[in-house]
Each structure stands twice: as structure tokens, then as C-alpha cells.
Design a protein around this nucleic acid. Structure first.
Lengths: 106, 106
DNA sequence: ATTGTACGACACCAAATAGTGTCATGTCAA
DNA sequence: TTGACATGACACTATTTGGTGTCGTACAAT
């Protein structure tokens, strides 16, 4: 029984700036080990590792062991859920323009 | 000096399921006072009020006083930031399909 | 004028979060 | 085989979060 199937909420996972930056770094570099991620942040290795674990629990990253390092890779697919959620509200932030148009019609 | 210009991160604001539900309720009903929001949740009025405050700090809701009640209204525009962030990653969750196509070309 | 409703502001509390340092294990390289 | 490196697991800590109850005030209605 792995500890990784703890199931994190994607919304929670992307709420942290550090984790968003990790996602970005992985998007840019395809595959990265922890010790290459770490120097991009001011915090220590352990902290970055824990953020990676949270991202794994949200299924936003996968990892494979390669010798003595563990390579992390982005899996963007869970972000689809966020996009789906957002799509419902898109009409609202254009509504101001729509309302303005309605008012102008008077 | 208001306390409301504390500037909350939109990503943090939408991380909580309660707050996402509030956003949805406001989207459906245009304008709602606290006491009409509250019965949709299992928690007390104070807790809902605090969630509303967080949403206000993220500029996701506006409020106006109307007699003895305060009407809350959705302002979806800050969600644009989330959408912009997401748009960068859209290509990645379609990449599997793209890669599959590439492989099939061999 | 009094009463009840709606609300914001506070004080408080438990649990989760984000960070730290340390240790044990596995692996590469000399 | 010895030593340095990469990592995961653990114990610990401070701060933030999400909830509670209570109080004071503003307002509406009788």
C-alpha cells in the first residue's frame, strides 16, 4: 500500500506559488531530479521534496527512479478539472462588457 | 485604512470547496445576503462570513449594504488570472495524443 | 420604544501546512 | 572498499487555516 494514493485536491495543489513554479520548471525541462529543482528555490531540499509529494498526490507529477536520483515529470492532465470548473464562469467576466452594451442600447 | 485591501491570492481563494460553492451560488443568484448563503452549508454563519471576507480580499466578490443586510455579488474577473496561467499548460495535456500520433507515424 | 434580525469584530481552539534538521539507505565513482 | 551524493523518512516547530461562540451595533417592524 503506497502512501501516494492519498488523493490531493488539484485546486489545493496549485494554490501554492512554490508548487506552481515547480510545475513550470517541469514543463520547461521535461524531466528533472530533486537536486536540480532545489536551487531554484530559497528553501531547503526537504521542503521542495514535500511539495513534490503533494504534487504527486494530486497526480500532477510522476516520478521514476534513475540510478541514485529520482526524475520527476509533469502530468498536466489533472489541470483539465480546473479548466472545466473555470469554463463555467468565463461568461461572467465578459458580462461587464455585455451589460455595458445593453445599457448603451437605451 | 480598510482591512480589505489585504490582497489574497486568487489561487488560494478558490482552493477551498466551500468558497467554490459560494462562488457558484452567487453566480446562480446574482446577489445574496449572508443569511441566505449560510443554510447551504453545514457550518455556522461566522465561518461563511469569513470565507466571504477571503473572497472579498481576492476581489472575487463585492458587497453593498442594503438596509440591515449586506448583499454579496460575484466578480468573476480575477479568475482570468487562473485561466491565463492554465492556458500555458493546455498543450501538455493534449501532448499524450500528440505523442501517440508521432509514434504511430513510425 | 422595544424587540428581533443581520451583521462585523473578537477571542479562542484544533488541525493542517510549510518549513527545519537529522538519519539511514542506495548508488556512483575513484 | 571507501567516500561523496541523492533521496526518502522521520521528528520537530511556527504559522496559517477553518471552525466555534459571544458581543455590540445598526436597522426594521410592530
Amino acid at each position: 500500500m503506497k502512501k501516494t494514493d492519498e488523493k490531493r485536491d488539484v485546486f489545493v495543489a496549485i494554490a501554492d506559488p512554490t508548487r506552481r513554479k515547480i510545475i513550470r520548471l517541469l514543463a520547461d525541462s521535461d524531466e528533472l531530479p530533486l537536486h536540480e529543482l532545489t536551487p531554484h528555490f530559497q528553501m531547503g531540499r526537504t521542503a521542495v521534496s514535500k511539495h513534490l509529494m503533494i504534487l504527486r498526490e494530486a497526480n500532477l507529477v510522476t516520478n521514476r527512479k534513475a540510478g541514485r536520483e529520482t526524475k520527476y515529470r509533469l502530468n498536466a492532465e489533472p489541470l483539465q478539472e480546473v479548466k472545466d470548473w473555470l469554463s463555467f464562469y468565463e461568461k461572467f467576466w465578459n458580462e461587464r462588457a455585455a451589460m455595458l452594451k445593453d445599457i448603451l442600447e437605451d
